[in-house]
């Protein structure tokens, strides 16, 4: 599995193999099919925003990318290598890191113990702590506090800190904003912006579309388990309100990826 260690290449060009790719993925929970054939490419160093209304399949897409759900058909590729059906822990060690929806923390462990869990991907504890507290000094002040008693924003920071401390190749972020006040969401996205500037490849799922279009390189709209439009954020913005609050069904057939 160690040969899988994927290294992000910041100067990626279009003809390079995408760092993460889904090809014709169909997947779902148990018997509930959610994704009806997703083709998606995340290029090295880019921020891709996946937008769309509830139930469109955004979180399921991330669950596939992180290995929690095995596609029923279709494949997933990491730097061109087939990783379809690889277990989530193996993917995590290979550099794919998910910040899950809600709070991706262990509520009954304290901050330090939560960060300790990040060391399974091969980093020393002191490295992890340095990285985490440098990014999020507020966590350093609360290192002994039980994670479940932190505020919502702090919990989300802890979740991000743990993810970043593993120095992942690909960061998957699922609805950072869920259940948080807008002002805190803004603060969290400041952090995301900084991380993105460092050249990490990020696939981010959001409902609050306007927050994210500013920092994404490309974006796509999902509807009914299909990826409809992909393109630069500006071209997406207009489609959004329609997609969320109802307009005509789009036919998914014709959507060249650019």
């Amino acid at each position: 599995m160690t040969s899988m260690q994927a290294v992000p290449t910041p100067d990626a060009t279009d003809d390079e193999v995408p760092i993460l790719q889904l090809a014709a993925v169909r997947a779902g929970y148990g018997r509930i099919d959610v994704l009806h054939g997703i083709d998606l490419e995340l290029r090295a160093g880019e921020v891709f925003a996946l937008l769309g209304p509830n139930g469109a399949g955004k979180s399921t897409t991330l669950a596939v990318c992180s290995g929690q759900i095995t596609p029923s058909t279709g494949g997933m590729f990491l730097c061109g290598r087939d990783v379809t059906g690889v277990a989530p822990d193996a993917l995590a060690r290979a550099g794919v890191c998910l910040i899950p929806e809600g709070r991706g923390i262990f509520p009954n462990l304290n901050v330090l113990e939560n960060l300790r869990m990040a060391t399974f991907t091969g980093h020393s504890f002191s490295q992890v702590l340095d990285l985490a507290f440098a990014q999020f000094p507020r966590l350093g002040e609360r290192r002994k506090q039980t994670a479940g008693t932190l505020s919502g924003g702090e919990q989300q920071m802890l979740s991000m800190a743990r993810a970043l401390a593993t120095e992942p190749a690909v960061l998957l972020i699922d609805e950072l904003s869920m259940g948080l006040a807008p002002i805190i969401v803004e603060e969290l996205y400041e952090h995301v912006r900084r991380i993105a500037a460092s050249g990490l490849s990020i696939l981010i799922v959001e409902q609050f579309a306007h927050e994210i279009l500013g920092l994404a390189d490309r974006a796509g709209i999902m509807l009914h388990g299909r990826l409809l439009h992909t393109g630069p954020p500006a071209s997406i913005a207009d489609e959004l309100a329609d997609a969320y609050l109802g307009a005509e069904h789009e036919t998914p057939a014709a959507h060249p990826s650019q």
Binding site: D89, A92, G104, F106, L109, F120, F125
Partner: peptide
């Protein structure tokens, strides 16, 4: 359970089994 990584991971599994796997802890 408090000091060692494997012990912390065992408690983490009680909290959230899926998340522990995402962290790379081999179940």
């Amino acid at each position: 359970l408090v000091r060692t990584r494997i012990g912390i991971a065992m408690r983490a599994v009680v909290d959230n089994r899926d998340l522990a796997a995402l962290e790379g802890a081999r179940s």
